[in-house]
Simulated scan of single mutants.
Amino acid sequence: MRSFTPVERRARLGRRHFLTAESRAADIDEVVTKMVGLHATDPATPYLTLWARVPGFGRDHLHTALYDSRSVVKHLAMRRTLWMVRSCDLPTIQTVSSDRVAADERRRLIADAEKSAVAPDGAVWLDTACAAVLEHLRRHGPTSARELRAALPELAGSHDPAPGKNWGGTTPLAPRVLTVLGVRGDIVRGPNDGGWAVSRPRWTLREHWLDGGDAHVPADQGALDIVGRWLRTFGPATATDVKWWFGHTLTWARQTLRGLGAVEVDLHGGIGYVLPDDLDSEPEPEPWAALLPGLDVTTMGWFDRDWYLGEHRAEVFDRNGNGGPTAWWNGRIVGGWGQDGDGRVVVRLLEDVGRDGATALTRRADELSAWLNGARVSPRFPSPVMKA
């Protein structure tokens, strides 16, 4: 059985995630294609993720891709997380992950509408509200959530998830109606009324925003396509990694790996998988440093993270498993980063990385400070090391 040491896995990570000097990506499309998607829950994350991987990347490049050429789009998918994916991959992502999330979101919303006495039949209420939103967008074009709530009485209603509890509180159901419509692929996030680090999307019909919006991909075919692409970039990986990343069951993960003909390999004592043509050894790259944003797709890339995270989990992940901004040296997380009062990027190390490592990370911090040019980034899920 082929064995992969942590050192070799970190070498693969550096090259395949476009983080070493010789493996930088040519453009946005190359990164999003090979990594399947980029985390976008925090609106600044895709921009910073691409800055770390594409030489010469500017904020206007992603703005053009999102809103002019529309080659990429934000969509709720794996693990009920907001992703930025290629528009041409949306039918596959929809089949593989989003349909599963959509069914869960619809079921919960119907139950909460009935529980809160918004309607005696939550399904009828939800279908009526969805139809009203679609008709409004068909007539008026891209519209903000606030404008939809003001225009459509069908969206009225609220729910308190924990009556009498200090962590509860009455919240409107209208945003959840838009979530259902979005995750099932009827509407998408169109023009953004906020800046690059602020999310204020106008919702629009998918068919009005994207070409080929009605394409359908069979579930089995879609799984083989998307998991195969993911495994080439993130492999070797365990079945649990696949299950977690795609938000599916372990049975589904194992069936898909079998369908790909994935080969079992030894991961420092455990069982992992790679594609059958991906067993060549990986030489160590030249030393490399990286500063990645909160929720970066590499930081969040595996369920089993000890081989690149070591003892720093409690410092760089919050209690809900959200990774904050991280500093990397030669394939390992060695600290975090934030901004000082003047907006300059500052690295805080959690271990001694030697003079070369410290110098390389300081250089990347200076480069990121120059790129931000005074703009401040406030991660939605700051890590303990960043708070400190």
Rank of each mutant, 00 (worst) to 15 (best):
A65W: 09
A162S: 14
P384D: 05
F303M: 09
K387F: 05
D214R: 08
Y67F: 15
R138H: 14
G222D: 11
D27P: 00
L181T: 02
D356N: 08
A117Y: 14
H39E: 00
W337H: 13
D193K: 08
G321E: 05
W83N: 01
E207F: 09
G343F: 09
E311F: 02
T256G: 10
K115D: 13
D342E: 12
R106T: 14
W83M: 03
F317H: 12
D121L: 10
W288K: 02
D342V: 03
D27A: 11
P379A: 04
Q94D: 12
M35D: 07
W329G: 05
D241I: 03
R24A: 15
H248Y: 11
G341N: 01
L155E: 11
V183N: 09
G335P: 00
V217A: 10
L126R: 13
D241Q: 11
A117Q: 11
D304Y: 03
L250V: 13
D356P: 03
R138I: 04
L66M: 13
G169V: 12
T256A: 12
T143E: 00
G324S: 05
A327I: 00
T64Q: 02
N330P: 00
D214I: 02
A123R: 13
T238G: 02
A119C: 13
G301R: 01
H248V: 11
A26H: 04
T128H: 14
G141Q: 07
P201K: 06
D27T: 11
P43G: 06
D241A: 07
V334G: 02
T81G: 04
G14W: 07
L181D: 03
L152T: 12
D121Q: 11
T238M: 08
A365T: 00
R149A: 14
W83H: 15
G56R: 03
R229G: 14
G294F: 10
S69M: 02
E135I: 11
Q94T: 14
V385Q: 10
L210F: 07
D89M: 03
L368C: 01
H140P: 06
G182P: 06
F381S: 01
T143D: 07
H312T: 06
